[in-house]
């Protein structure tokens, strides 16, 4: 997939991203189909339908909202990779944000697009290799990784991750940070439904609210 002379880098990223996306869509869908062919069995249709009805509405709704929320932050290359390799909010996006911040590039510039893509690609490769090593060494590793001593450390990855990132972004945008942080603190503290399982739904809420606040502050000349 060579870059044509009249095609910009970004345009070629979109073209290649679509081609890779379609290939992977086919491959991932082929997994359960191949299982049926190999083992000569069909799924339990009733359980499949009931399971799908139970999880699909929620996960498809979240999936659609995630596209509009995360694509603008990830950049084109980063988005095509992240929506295949997953773990966006807890790994890929923070990793890309940190990389762009460190390199001093803006997310909506070509430099930002490139640094974000490199960071997410390296993170995806590293994750895949770590999981492959883990799968090969699963027998000796299981007692270590499941040890009660280490469990609290892995349970608290998100607070540890966002503690550091918050310092970077809040200190750069103190005026814009106040309202969304207060809103989210109040909501999460006082609404029992909001917890680790529902934080994904609150990301677009936080993003839309912050955009609204940013627009008002910008129009008033405060930002």
């Amino acid at each position: 997939m060579k870059q044509k002379k009249n095609m910009t880098y970004l345009e070629s990223v979109h073209r290649d991203g679509r081609v890779w996306g379609l290939i992977l869509f086919g491959l991932i869908l082929s997994f359960p189909i191949l299982l049926s062919l190999i083992f000569g069995e069909l799924p339990e249709w009733g359980a499949l339908a009931r399971g799908a009805i139970a999880v699909l509405p929620m996960y498809w709704a979240v999936g659609i909202v995630e596209i509009f929320t995360y694509v603008p932050m990830l950049g084109a290359g980063g988005a095509y990779l992240s929506f295949v390799t997953g773990n966006i909010a807890n790994l890929k996006l923070p990793c890309a944000l940190d990389a762009m911040e460190r390199a001093g590039v803006k997310a909506n510039s070509e430099e930002g697009e490139i640094i974000s893509t490199i960071s997410i690609a390296v993170s995806s490769i590293a994750t895949t290799i770590i999981i492959i090593l883990g799968v090969i060494l699963i027998v000796p590793l299981t007692p270590i990784l499941n040890s009660p001593v280490l469990k609290p450390a892995f349970d608290q990855i998100l607070p540890a991750l966002f503690g550091g990132l918050a310092v970077v972004f809040v200190s750069k945008n103190p005026k814009l940070s106040i309202a969304p942080i207060i809103l989210m603190l109040v909501l999460f503290i006082f609404v029992p439904f909001l917890n680790a399982g529902t934080v994904g739904i609150m990301v677009p809420v936080g993003v839309l609210f912050t955009l609204g606040v940013a627009r008002i502050l910008y129009k008033k000349g405060i930002l």
Binding site: L93, A107, F162, L176, M184, F188, V199, V203, L211
Partner: peptide, 26 residues
């Protein structure tokens, strides 16, 4: 505004996760 827009996206996400950190304090 383009730069502020980007920063607002990042801060919106970070504020949601900061809120989550406090979800069980009560």
């Amino acid at each position: 505004w383009g730069e502020i827009f980007n920063n607002a996206l990042f801060l919106g996400m970070i504020s949601a996760f900061l809120g989550y950190v406090f979800s069980d304090v009560l």
